[in-house]
Design a protein around this nucleic acid. Structure first.
Length: 487
RNA sequence: GUCCCCAUCGUCUAGCGGCCUAGGACACUACCCUUUCACGGUAGAUACACCGGUUCAAAUCCGGUUGGGGACGCCA
């Protein structure tokens, strides 16, 4: 049984890099009919917050990445047989395992403080040696150490690296990677404040939670050596590792806030569809066997195998994301599309009474959706059919200056007033337009542009024969009157 | 500094020794469609970082160089 996990530390919104790690783990689990576990790595008391955990859970839900075990998506209560799933609540477990290490002599209590350790490192550097901490000449025996701690002293528990040899990792993404054991010094497992450290809880939890495959970011590659040492010390089975390459900004530096939007939440706000963001991040670091790029969740699960990981880092290209988003936007059924657009219209304070009519909505969406790349593009498109917002835009200044314009507008107004119905169909509009042409003796640009301005207040936009049926006769009359007042 | 990872069009990538005068996608350019914008269609330009080896044959394998990134925390 394949069991994988995503283990974010709750320090803000979910970053796209984290989202990709989550997605890959999720797809990998589902591809193999396995389980996907969410574990919260909140051992850094300084930076971790409950609020951040909530935000990350919301982002994961938004992306449609569901976990089988971990904090419940709504209540956040533990869900699954291997809890707790928040590391801050597993302190006793870690301590128990650390004690085992101490008992067997593979770890020791270290009473040295920051200043002393700093001095040791400095001395080693001066001697041209790597700044790696080793055990003090005299290790405090466990019993004595515990007594001192009971009296209020503080000590960390440090793993003692004794064996000198190469550790070989067979990475799912990178193949064989060799680490010499002297790459690391004795490392801390439990901080002197009693909190365990990442490398330690990670191993204990992955083992206890029966994790079989660890897909995580490349920055953890060198951590793997320490973790392998711990796996061996506890005689735990070692999972398969896969170290994913980074997602970079356009300057090839690790993607960060200064590159603009980097969290899923940012992209949500910018009007991206979760399906599109999902599909996009899927493709930075992995490729489908047949080269197809737009893949449904089902196809993603079916095709997702580790052989197709790319070990090279990928630059995040928002332009392509934009394209992908427009593809997903268009593929969405209209009522679904509408529910996603509505919040953006509301935000922009655009009110369209006609939009209560599903037939109208269907027509309008059909007219506008090919012009949208993100949901945030909707307001400026729908604005043109919102009566309360009609005005003659600055772009229309040239058209206003034309000699023919006044005549065209007046004729257009007369014809509209004579129109028998509130509705103006596409065919009727065509006839009306032809009549204006005949009556004014104006054609081409000088005919069409003034009419367009009379309809939407600007000389550029969607085809008039599609736009006009979205408006009423009354509305069209009011609009052209507003235009005439401007002359 | 030491160790580790990485290197194909501007970007995401295909390629796992001959099928490569290197394929696809986004972006770009031109043309077509079109009263405008967008959509759509067609065509085009653009890449194997460098130097050595191995081989009949190298984008592909091996060294090195360069460049980029990461780790060296009582951060994760």
């Amino acid at each position: 049984m394949v069991r994988v996990r995503f283990a974010p530390s709750p320090t803000g919104y979910l970053h796209v890099g984290g989202a990709r790690t989550a997605l890959y783990n999720y797809l990998f689990a589902k591809h193999h009919g396995g389980q996907f576990i969410l574990r919260v790595e909140d051992t850094d008391l300084e930076r971790s917050t409950d609020e951040s955990m909530r935000m990350q859970i919301e982002d994961l839900k938004w992306l449609g990445i569901n976990w089988d075990e971990g904090p419940h998506p709504e209540t956040h209560a533990d869900m699954g047989p291997y809890g707790p799933y928040r590391q801050s609540r597993r302190k006793e477990i870690y301590m128990q395992y650390a004690e085992r290490l101490v008992e067997s002599g593979r770890a020791y209590f270290d009473f040295r403080g920051d200043a002393e350790l700093e001095a040791i490192k400095e001395r080693l550097m001066k001697e041209g040696k790597p700044p790696q901490i080793e055990a003090p000449a005299e290790i405090v025996p466990p019993a004595e150490a515990r007594a001192r701690i009971a009296r209020g002293e503080q000590a960390a528990i440090r793993y003692r690296v004794t064996e000198k040899r190469d550790y070989v990792l067979n990475d799912l993404v990178r193949g064989e990677v060799r680490f010499p054991s002297d790459m690391v010094g004795d490392f801390v497992c439990i901080r002197s404040n009693g909190m365990p450290v990442y490398n330690f809880c990670c191993v204990i939890d992955d083992a206890l939670m029966k994790i079989t495959h660890v897909l995580r970011a490349e920055e953890h590659l060198s951590n793997t050596l320490r973790q392998m040492m711990l796996y061996e010390a506890f005689d735990f089975p070692i999972p398969k590792f896969g170290h994913l390459s980074f997602i970079l900004g356009p300057d090839k530096q690790k993607l960060s806030k200064r590159h603009g939007a980097t969290s899923c939440h940012d992209f949500n706000l910018k009007g991206y569809l979760p399906e599109a963001l999902n599909n996009f991040i899927l493709l930075s670091g992995w490729s489908s066997p047949d080269g197809r790029e737009i893949l449904s969740r089902e196809e993603q699960i079916k095709l997702f195998t580790h052989e197709r990981f790319n070990p090279a880092p990928a630059v995040f290209d928002e332009t392509k994301l934009l394209w992908m988003n427009s593809m997903y936007l268009r593929a969405l059924p209209h009522d679904e599309l509408w529910t996603r657009i509505e919040p953006f219209l509301k935000e922009a304070k655009i009110e369209i009474p006609q939009s209560k009519d599903p037939v109208w909505r269907d027509q309008a969406l059909g007219a506008f959706k090919t012009s949208m790349q993100t949901l945030a593009d909707a307001p400026k498109l729908f604005e043109t059919v919102a009566d309360s917002l009609f005005s003659v835009k600055p772009e229309a200044v040239e058209v206003k200056g034309w000699a023919e314009t006044k005549k065209v507008w007046e004729t257009w107004l007369q014809l509209l007033e004579a129109h028998p119905s509130e509705k103006v169909s596409e065919a009727e509009f065509g006839a009306l337009q032809d009549k204006v042409k005949d009556l004014c003796g104006v054609k081409g640009k000088t005919l069409f542009q003034p009419i367009r301005v009379a309809v939407i207040g600007q000389p550029q936009g969607t085809e008039l024969k599609i736009l006009v049926p979205l408006l009423t006769k009354t509305s069209l009359i009011n609009r052209v009157k507003t235009c005439l007042k401007e002359l």
